[in-house]
Simulated assay, not measured.
Amino acid sequence: MILKGFKFGMLLQLAIGPVCISIFQIAVLKGFYAGEIATLGAALVDGIFIAIATLGIASIINKKNIRICLKMFGSIILFIFGISMILSQFHINFLPSLCMYNIPNSNGIFIRIVILTASNPLTIVFWAGIFSSKVAEENMKKQDIYFFGFGALLSTITFLTLISLLGSFANVFFSTQVIQFLNIIVGLLLIYFGLKMLLKNK
């Protein structure tokens, strides 16, 4: 079940999102160690979301009014991160505490990624749907669900570690101008993900 969860989770990781892009950017700017700190932050939130999904609490979040509020909250967070990232490339401090250049230590990186990952609590609903379908398909017992979830969480750590490694290598080969351009692209993508979340019907 752990292997099944891992393989299924790796398939889901291919749908690149704002957290993956942010961890790549962190590794480019701060190196592999910083990227791994960010990976642990993302894994912590994913682990909490998966636990909530397996416990069935996601049905509360699935209510229409709560979903709308969460979508608005998540969209605003992503939009603020994106704007801050773009403006920082032109030496404009929109929100200095969110700028990667101004994060002095690993604690700041960890908290930044935790906020970014948690900005989309609808992921809980997504995981709940995944677990519901897999329980029916595999006829899972309670213990099997926990192992499957653990495997899915391992896939998050593995995939984001690879992204972090890739980013740390990119740091060696990319010029300052290329990294600056990359940061602007990351900012635009975060804004795109925020707008996409806000405008999504379901």
Rank of each mutant, 00 (worst) to 15 (best):
Leu11Glu: 07
Phe6Thr: 00
Leu195Asn: 07
Phe193Lys: 03
Ile113Leu: 12
Leu11Asp: 06
Ile23His: 05
Ala51Met: 05
Ile52Trp: 12
Phe110Leu: 00
Phe79Ala: 03
Gly47Phe: 09
Ala152Met: 02
Lys64Phe: 07
Asn171Ala: 09
Met10Gln: 04
Val178Gln: 12
Leu78Ile: 04
Ile113Arg: 14
Leu153Phe: 13
Leu55Cys: 08
Thr176Met: 09
Glu36Cys: 15
Asn62Phe: 08
Met10Phe: 04
Ile37Phe: 11
Phe174Cys: 00
Val19Met: 13
Ile111Met: 04
Gly151Tyr: 07
Ser119Trp: 09
Leu195Thr: 08
Leu14Ile: 02
Thr156Val: 01
Ala15Ser: 04
Thr117Ser: 08
Leu154His: 00
Pro18Asp: 05
Gly47Arg: 14
Ile23Arg: 10
Asn102Thr: 12
Asn105Pro: 07
Ile77Gln: 10
Phe159Ile: 07
Lys196Phe: 12
Cys99Glu: 15
Ser88Asn: 04
Ile115Trp: 11
Trp127Lys: 02
Leu160Cys: 08
Trp127Leu: 02
Ser133Trp: 07
Ala136Leu: 12
Gly56Ser: 05
Asp46Thr: 14
Leu98Trp: 03
Arg112Trp: 14
Leu166Ala: 10
Ser119Gly: 09
Ala15Asn: 04
Met140Asn: 10
Gly74Ile: 00
Leu44Met: 11
Gln180Lys: 14
Phe131Asn: 09
Pro104Lys: 03
Gln177Tyr: 13
Ala58His: 10
Pro96Arg: 11
Ala170Asp: 15
Val114Arg: 04
Leu87Gly: 09
Ala58Phe: 12
Ser164Trp: 05
Leu95Gln: 11
Leu122Thr: 12
Leu122His: 13
Leu44Asn: 12
Ser75Pro: 02
Met197Trp: 03
Gly17Asp: 15
Leu122Glu: 09
Ser119Val: 06
Gly74Cys: 01
Phe79Glu: 02
Ala118Val: 00
Ala53Lys: 06
Val125Ala: 08
Ile23Gln: 08
Ile60Phe: 12
Ala152Asn: 02
Thr156Arg: 01
Ile92Glu: 08
Leu78Gly: 05
Ala118Phe: 03
Leu162Asp: 01
Gln180Met: 11
Phe32Pro: 01
Leu12Arg: 12
Leu87Cys: 08
Tyr101Arg: 02
Asn102Val: 10
Ala15Asp: 05
Gly194Asp: 13
Lys200Cys: 05
Ile111Trp: 11
Asn183Phe: 05
Glu36Leu: 15
Thr39Val: 00
Cys20Lys: 02
Phe73Trp: 14
Ala136Met: 09
Phe173Met: 06
Ala42Glu: 15
Asn171Gly: 06
Ile21Leu: 04
Ile2Arg: 07
Gly108Ile: 13
Val45Leu: 08
Ile23Phe: 15
Ile113Phe: 14
Met140Arg: 14
Asn120Cys: 03
Ile60Tyr: 14
His91Leu: 05
Tyr146Arg: 09
Ile80Thr: 11
Leu122Pro: 14
Leu162Tyr: 01
Leu190Lys: 00
Gly5Ala: 10
Phe159Met: 14
Ala43Leu: 06
Ala51Phe: 05
Ala53Trp: 06
